[in-house]
Design a protein around this nucleic acid. Structure first.
Lengths: 142, 142
DNA sequence: TTTTTATCCTACCAACCTGGTAGGTAAGTA
DNA sequence: TACTTACCTACCAGGTTGGTAGGATAAAAA
């Protein structure tokens, strides 16, 4: 289950992309528009800075700005960053110790295929795609 | 992330299927073979009985037995049962209250497509498929 | 009928995760 | 100097996870 950290990070990225005008956008504005606590966003957003998705500027006229173009921001990268991992089972997670039953495990292949399915799905979507996404219309297709 | 409940339930089903001989198999045997605490399994397994995947018999000579053929046991059904839900985000979970931002949400369509992707994937796999699964061989394909 | 075997049921628990809040500090602009 | 904004750290309540413990109940064997 994707937690609020990943979901909020995506909404911040979309919001910054939609209001992109070259200057810096205060996180307070994003928080107001997205109806998310500024304090909570302030704890989520720094990792996006560290990995070079956005850059922050202190003081008046400061805020955040996209570093890459929305077309180059893959949802998969943002989710892996904020969620730590997209692994569907513990044994495939990043810091997992090797499972002793792996050689005889009848479910391992299923989990591994699922793992690549997940990562491929989100790697195939960019922030630019989400900007164009209209939920009401898409609902009929699904 | 799929918890131990769902993963252990699958291993129990596979174990029962592999040792199927018409009579009842004590959960103690399954617990020993799978190296899972009997007490913990006893708390997980009843839901499989309630939904008609397996049937239990008390007393000596008792244990559990598959009701359906392994070909008719879909992994998706077992996981939805034991995990409660396979929804990737809170707003798509079973008891979720409708989200007020749904009409303007730019990520909803992505989550919905991901949700059907997950369910379709696991609905396309049966216990019979898992019985045939050889992890070592499949690793090279993935 | 007693004993054994097994399912089934409920309560409890420690550790961790989630979704925050609170209170500051650092840095840049007016 | 005053203000604004990013940035950092500690704390916290509530829920989930992954169990354990101790039985009650049912059925077959002795």
């Amino acid at each position: 289950m994707i937690s609020t950290r990943g979901r909020y990070a995506l909404r911040v990225m979309i919001d910054l992309a939609e209001h992109q005008n070259g200057s810096y956008i205060p996180m307070k504005d994003v928080a107001d528009r997205q109806d998310i606590s500024l304090k909570y966003l302030e704890r989520i957003v720094p990792v996006l800075t560290q990995e070079g998705f956005i850059e922050g500027l202190h003081g008046k006229g400061g805020g955040y700005r996209l570093v890459k173009a929305p077309e180059d921001c893959r949802v998969g990268d943002i989710l892996r960053l904020t969620e730590g991992d997209l692994a569907p089972v513990a044994c495939l997670a990043k810091g997992a110790q090797p499972c002793g039953r792996a050689a005889e495990c009848r479910t391992l292949a299923m989990w591994q295929k699922f793992n690549t399915l997940i990562n491929d799905y989100f790697d195939g979507i960019t922030i630019a795609d989400l900007m164009k996404s209209s939920p009401a219309a898409d609902n009929y297709i699904i």
